[in-house]
């Protein structure tokens, strides 16, 4: 394995983790939008706030990590993507601001109408951001981002059938991951009613995402034949694995095995993210730009890999502590302190 391949794998792992972790946070925002009115809606929203509050910032950093590794390891690809896809990426960036800031503001405000305004901003940008990021993925995967600065079509590069599919699948995947994770949290923290509410939506979203993905095959066949070929040949095992994990998740949801669902749902998403990578390897910008032609100087690749390795050694235990700490109950419960 060359240093370039290794960095590509690290980059893609970062992207996968962003999809699995931050994706679920965006999905939680999606459900915040559709949580309903009144006391029941409030309970569902409180659960979302409670669960993603401590972790969303850390989950969000994976995106920065991916951007930095991309411009360090494959600078010309970064420049081509960012310059041609200026419009959707600017909108995604604004969505990121709206989501994060409004979430923090809602938590800090106590006046109902403000909570509603911040909550609506949080929820709407949680839907728009994944859409634009998915559209960007569709633009790259369908070969609409040529090398060079802003050489692609500034609108049609990301406003086309594959990008629509990417955007809708991104929203659906985020929403699905969120419900798959939230079922267990709901049962533990908020009771069976809330858990059942999320379970029904997990089942429904799972089916919808599956149908969209199947229908997407037809879209890709006509709109992105290169990607279609890759997905149906070299990446086929991963596509099948994703489908199997998806069906398994639905069965486990039906059986209310919420802990296992987390793993199968994450596996389904991981398999399709890597399926995309395998389908277009070694191209970074299909149809012609290879990773090898775009990669940075050997010294840069090696030093970045070393820094990433050392950084990960410090980061992973910290991250694990964060995620585990807030899965446990508080040390001294508020409930116990109150009369």
């Amino acid at each position: 394995m060359t240093a370039g391949q290794a960095l590509l794998a690290v980059l893609w792992s970062g992207l996968t983790l962003y999809a699995l972790l931050a994706g679920a946070d965006f999905g939680a925002g999606f459900w915040d939008l559709f949580a309903g009115r009144g006391g029941a809606g409030r309970t569902r929203r409180d659960l979302i706030e409670h669960v993603i509050g401590p972790v969303w910032e850390a989950n969000h950093v994976w995106l920065i990590f991916v951007l930095v590794l991309l411009w360090t390891g494959f600078p010309s690809v970064f420049a081509a993507v960012m310059s041609t896809l200026y419009v959707p990426l600017t909108l995604a960036a604004l969505g990121i601001i709206g989501r994060g800031a409004a979430f923090a503001f809602r938590k800090a405000s106590t006046v109902p109408w403000q909570q509603r305004v911040f909550g609506a901003t949080f929820a709407v940008s949680s839907v728009l951001t994944p859409f634009f990021l998915g559209a960007v993925a569709g633009a790259i995967a369908s070969g609409r981002v040529p090398p060079g600065l802003a050489t692609g079509d500034l609108v049609r590069s990301w406003w086309n059938p594959t990008s629509w599919l990417g955007g809708v699948l991104a929203i659906g995947t985020c929403a699905y991951l969120a419900t798959a994770y939230l079922c267990g949290d709901a049962r533990r923290l908020a009771g069976t009613d809330v858990a059942e509410w999320y379970r029904r939506r997990a089942l429904g979203t799972g089916v919808v995402v599956g149908v969209v993905a199947l229908g997407g095959i037809a879209v890709l066949r006509s709109d992105a034949p290169g990607l279609f070929h890759g997905l149906t040949h070299r990446a086929l095992p991963l596509v099948v694995a994703s489908a199997v994990a998806g069906v398994a998740s639905l069965i486990l949801l039906a059986l209310r095995r919420y802990l296992l669902v987390r793993f199968t749902a994450a596996a389904a998403v991981t398999a399709i993210v890597w399926g995309w990578a395998v389908a277009q390897y070694p191209h970074m910008l299909p149809p012609d730009t290879d990773y090898a032609a775009a990669q940075a100087d050997q010294a840069v690749l090696v030093d970045t890999l070393i820094v990433t390795g050392v950084g990960t050694l410090i980061l992973l235990p910290s991250l694990a502590w964060l995620l585990v700490l807030f899965q446990r109950s508080p040390r001294q419960s508020h409930r116990a302190r109150q009369p």
């Binding site: 590794l69 411009w71 360090t72 600078p75 010309s76 420049a79 970045t304 950084g311």
Partner: peptide, 17 residues
């Protein structure tokens, strides 16, 4: 960034961590 992204990537990667 297309040319010099790799030259200044290291401090950004460290900053990322």
């Amino acid at each position: 960034m297309g040319t010099y992204g790799q030259v200044i990537g290291l401090p950004f990667a460290l900053e990322g961590f």
